[in-house]
């Protein structure tokens, strides 16, 4: 009897100490994670705070991210009109290119993905393998011939080299993403539709697309962000200031006035991140799931 009681107390003591250990571990882990979060987000907060400081305070405020005594919004209009062409034009250009890219990418990639996932035709496996190969291809290999091609077509210094490839499903990664999703949709649905006399187009349009809104949204958002961020494409294809995207405008800002006007540069940097941040705010679950299931690059 006594031994039983002893054993019982030993067990509870053991339990209590384990619970204590777990509690301590949890506190330490949270402290670590909070510290890491602050460290990681600090540069972003500093950028935001600096954009609201008067020019002469930016580098005298030390590491503080608290706003100065008075909020100073001057940097924004100064940066907005800091180049011969205003940032309003650059934002408009970026939006046009990004939105057209989204439309092209979602349309062309979903068509191709439907063929790979659902249609039977000779050579399907071969072409699918070819598509996967292009995923690994460094873009530098096609860069120069593509440039020569677009030059001969008279497309350099227009938005066409940045947009038309999206309508031709050149970003094969999204085909792959959609094939994975389409394969998860029950086949019975399109078989039933085929019994009712629906052709491939109707199945694609009336069944697959409506059931695939999550993957279509993920593809749309990532296309928007990647196009918005793209620096290399606009750098080689656009040379007129009035055609510049936001990213090119920022680069030009650092070259010309950036050395003297940090406030304006920081303000425009903040504005350039706003669209991406909004997507993050409202669609982060979709973005994170998209990455988790397919292993997207960023």
């Amino acid at each position: 009897m006594t031994t039983d009681v002893q054993r019982l107390t030993v067990v509870t003591e053991d339990d209590a100490s384990r619970r204590l250990r777990r509690r301590v571990f949890s506190v330490v882990a949270h402290l670590l994670l909070i510290g890491a979060s602050i460290l990681m987000l600090y540069p972003l907060l500093w950028l935001l705070a600096s954009s609201f400081r008067p020019e002469n305070e930016i580098f005298t405020s030390g590491i503080s991210v608290l706003p100065s005594t008075s909020w100073d919004l001057d940097s924004y209009p100064r940066g907005w009109n800091g180049l011969q062409v205003g940032f309003g034009t650059f934002f408009a250009n970026s939006f046009v290119i990004s939105i057209l890219s989204v439309i092209g990418n979602v349309a062309a990639c979903s068509l191709a993905a439907f063929a790979f996932a659902r249609l039977e035709f000779r050579g399907r496996k071969f072409w699918f393998a070819m598509m996967l190969m292009t995923l690994m291809l460094p873009y530098q290999v096609t860069l120069i011939p593509q440039y020569v091609l677009f030059l001969n077509l008279g497309w350099v210094n227009t938005f066409l080299p940045l947009i038309v490839p999206k309508f031709l499903a050149a970003d094969a990664f999204f085909i792959f993403l959609m094939v994975q999703f389409f394969r998860g949709i029950p086949k019975e649905l399109d078989e039933a539709a085929r019994m009712d006399g629906a052709g491939p187009w109707r199945i694609y349009w009336k069944i697959m697309l409506p059931l695939s809104t999550p993957v279509l949204a993920t593809a749309a958002i990532f296309t928007f962000i990647w196009t918005w961020d793209d620096f290399f494409g606009p750098l080689i294809y656009l040379s007129e200031l009035r055609d510049y995207t936001v990213m090119l405008g920022l680069r030009t800002f650092t070259d010309s006035t950036g050395q003297s006007d940090y406030g304006g540069l920081f303000a425009m940097s903040v504005l350039s991140l706003v669209p991406i941040f909004l997507f993050f705010l409202f669609f982060q679950r979709l973005l994170i799931e998209g990455i988790a299931t397919t292993g997207m690059k960023r």
Binding site: F231, M247, S272, L273, F280, L287
Partner: peptide
């Protein structure tokens, strides 16, 4: 989400 934010913004010129 906090740790992912830099990955999303990181490619930007800004």
């Amino acid at each position: 989400a906090l740790f992912y934010l830099p990955s999303l913004l990181g490619a930007s010129v800004a």
